[in-house]
Nucleic acid binder design. Structure first.
Lengths: 341, 341
DNA sequence: TTCTCTACTGTGAACGTTCACAGGAGCATC
DNA sequence: GATGCTCCTGTGAACGTTCACAGTAGAGAA
C-alpha cells in the first residue's frame, strides 16, 4: 500500500482471455498476427483488449522468444565531439522515429572508455538488444568486430575502414560529394583550391580528401601538399588548419572544408586575416548541418541526406535481425548553394 | 542452425550454480548484494561467473520483480526545435552517463504527435520503464499529468507550470540568472535595455522575463513595452524580434536575449542594421551553449549548469523509484564574460 | 453413413529469474 | 542437554508469455 507510486498490476493476457471468453492461446494468436483465428474470436479479443487497456508484457514475451524487440544506438567515441556535432542529433532523431514506426524502442548507449565498452559489449551479447546501430567515426574500433563475431546484427553509420569482417553500413557518397564541391569551386574560376580534411582514420576524412585529389588531378592541377591541412571535425581544428593554409599558401583562393563545423573555424581565421569570403577566398563546407546556416556569410555546402541515412540504417538492421545478410547502402549527396562560394 | 546470427544460448544462473557447486538461490543472493552469503560461497560464485561469462537475463528478472531496471527519456515536443538546440545534447548525454553509472539503460522516446503520445503513455504505464525523465519545454503537456496520475515516477527538466499534481523537477535559477545579466548590463552604464523573451508558455520564458522586469523596476527604469519582444528560442525568431525592437526603440543600447540561439539571430539583425556589438548595443545571451562560442563577437551569457542538471534529474528520479517523495531542485547559474557585452 | 481434411481452439510445459519458506549447522545461554 | 538464536543454504512456486501439440467441429468426398 505504501510502496512507491502504488501502481496497480496491469491486466494480463489471462484477464483479456476471460473478458473475451476465449483461451490464452487465442489471445496470443491475435496479438501475433492473427493467423488461424475466427473473425468472431478476433473481434471479441480486440474489444477485450480495448476494454481492459491490456498491453503485452514484453519481459515475459522476451523471456520465451529470446528476442528483446529493442535495438541499441551505440556511440563509441572517446571525445565529446559527437555531441557538439549537430549531425548526431538528426541521426539519433531519425533512427528513433523510424524504429518507433515499427514499435521498437531504442536504447541509447555511450561507451567512451574502454571499461564502458567492455560492459556494454557484455550487455549486448547477452541478448538484451536484438541489434545495434553503431555510430563511431574512428576506425580501429574493436566493438564492431567483437559484436560481429558474437553474431549480433549490426549496422554502422559510415563505412568502417580496415575491417576484415563483413559489416553492414550506410553512408553518404563522401567521395562524390567532395568531387562535386571541388568541381564547383573550379567552375568559379578558382585555381588555388585548398582543403581542410577530416581525421584520416575516419572513412569520411579519407574519402573526401580522395575526391578532392581526384578532381584536382583531372583538372591538371598538380598536387600541392601546402594546400592540404588536417582537422579533426571540430571548429577549433578548422580555425588552426586555416591558419596553416594561409601561412603555407598565401595565394589560396578557395577552400573545401570537410565539415561545416570546421568551416566555421575557417571563416573566422580568414576574416581575421583580412580575407573577404567569397570575394578573396571561396569556402565550401560539408554536411549541411545547422551550423552552415549560422555562419556569416551562409555556407555553401554538401548536404548529407541524414533523414534517408537513418531510415536506411534502421531498415537494414531490421532486415538483418530478420535473417537477411549484411548489406551496404550508399546514398547520394547534394550541393547546396549559399553565399560562401 | 540457419537462424539469424546463430548466437549460442548464453549461460544461465543454473550453469553458474553447477559450476560453483552451490544452488540457484545462493547465486541469486550473490547477484543481488550478497547478504547472508559465506565468503567461500561468494568467491566460488564470482569465479564461476567470470569463467562462464554469465550476464543476468534482465527479462526474467523483470518478469518476477515487476521492475524493468530501465528509465525512459521522454521528449514531448511538436517542433523539431529540441534537436536544433545544443543544450538538448548535453542533457541527454549527461543523463545517459549518470544512469550508466547505476547500470540502468536509458530508452529514448520521442512523442511529437498526439497519437505517439498516447502510444508511449500506454507503453510507459504498462511498466516497461521504472520512471521517466521528461523534457518538454511547453506547459499544458498532458503527458506529465497522465503519467503522474498513473503513479509513474517522473522528473521534469524545468518547472512544469500550471499543474496541480505535484511533480518533481530540476531547473536552473532562471529568474536569478536573468537578474544577474540585466544587472551586469546596467553596471556597464546601459540604460535602454531591451529583451527578447522565450515562449511565454514555458517556465524559462516566464521566469527570465520576470527577472528582467524586476531589475529594471528596482533601478527605477519604468516598464517600456517597446523594449520587449517575443521569441520562440529559435535563431530566426531572435532575428525577427531584434528587428521589431530596433523599429520600436531605436535608441536601445543593450539587449538581454533569453537564449543563445536567439542571440545569434539578434546579432545578425544588429549587424545588418549597422549597429556595432558591443560598442553601440551590448548583447547578453542565456544558456552558454556551443552557439555562444560560435558567434562573432563571442557571446557573454548565463551558463546553465547542464552537467549538474542531468545528474540531479537522475538522482531525484532514482530516489523516487526507490520510494521517496517528489522533490524540486533549483541550481544556480553563472555569468560568463565574453565579448558581446 | 463414414471417413478425411481443414480451420480453429484449448492446454501443459517452458523460458530464467526472484521470493518465501523450510531446514541445517554452529554457537551461546540457561 | 535442551533451547533459542543467528547465519547460511536449498527448493518449490510464481511471474506472463509463447510454443507445440492435442483435440473439436464442420464441410466435403467416398
Amino acid at each position: 500500500m505504501h510502496t512507491a507510486g502504488g501502481r496497480p498490476r496491469p491486466p494480463t493476457i489471462h484477464d483479456v482471455a476471460r473478458e473475451a471468453g476465449v483461451s490464452r492461446g487465442t489471445v496470443s494468436r491475435v496479438l501475433n498476427g492473427g493467423r488461424n483465428v475466427s473473425t468472431a474470436a478476433r473481434d471479441a479479443v480486440e474489444a477485450a483488449i480495448r476494454r481492459t487497456g491490456y498491453v503485452v508484457n514484453r519481459h515475459a514475451r522476451s523471456l520465451i522468444t529470446g528476442r528483446s524487440d529493442s535495438v541499441g544506438f551505440l556511440l563509441t567515441e572517446p571525445q565529446e565531439r559527437f555531441f557538439e556535432d549537430p549531425n548526431f542529433n538528426v541521426l539519433l532523431r531519425g533512427c528513433t522515429e523510424a524504429l518507433a514506426a515499427h514499435d521498437v524502442p531504442l536504447l541509447l548507449m555511450i561507451a567512451g572508455t574502454e571499461a564502458e565498452r567492455r560492459r556494454i559489449t557484455r550487455y549486448i551479447t547477452a541478448g538484451h538488444v536484438d541489434g545495434v546501430l553503431l555510430v563511431s567515426s574512428h576506425s580501429g574500433d574493436p566493438v564492431a568486430v567483437r559484436l560481429r563475431e558474437a553474431g549480433v546484427p549490426l549496422v554502422a553509420c559510415g563505412k568502417p575502414i580496415g575491417q576484415g569482417t563483413k559489416v553492414s553500413y550506410v553512408a553518404a557518397a563522401d567521395r562524390d560529394g567532395a568531387r562535386e564541391m571541388v568541381q564547383y569551386l573550379l567552375s568559379l574560376g578558382r585555381r588555388r583550391v585548398g582543403t581542410v580534411t577530416g581525421p584520416l582514420d575516419t572513412p569520411g576524412g579519407v574519402e573526401r580528401l580522395a575526391g578532392y585529389r581526384e578532381v584536382l588531378a583531372e583538372a591538371g592541377l598538380g598536387a600541392d601538399e601546402r594546400l592540404i591541412a588536417n582537422g579533426d571535425y571540430s571548429r577549433a581544428s578548422g580555425e588552426a588548419a586555416a591558419e596553416r593554409l594561409l601561412a603555407g599558401a598565401p595565394d589560396l583562393d578557395a577552400v573545401f572544408v570537410a565539415s561545416d563545423l570546421m568551416a566555421q573555424g575557417v571563416l573566422a581565421a580568414l576574416q581575421r586575416a583580412g580575407r573577404r569570403v567569397p570575394e578573396d577566398v571561396a569556402v565550401g563546407g560539408f554536411d549541411d548541418s545547422p551550423a552552415a546556416l549560422a555562419t556569416q556569410p551562409p555556407m555553401t555546402t554538401i548536404r548529407q541526406p541524414w533523414g534517408r541515412i537513418s531510415a536506411e540504417m534502421v531498415r537494414v538492421l531490421l532486415a538483418q535481425i530478420g535473417g537477411e545478410d549484411p548489406a551496404a547502402v550508399i546514398l547520394p549527396t547534394e550541393l547546396v548553394h549559399r553565399a560562401s562560394a
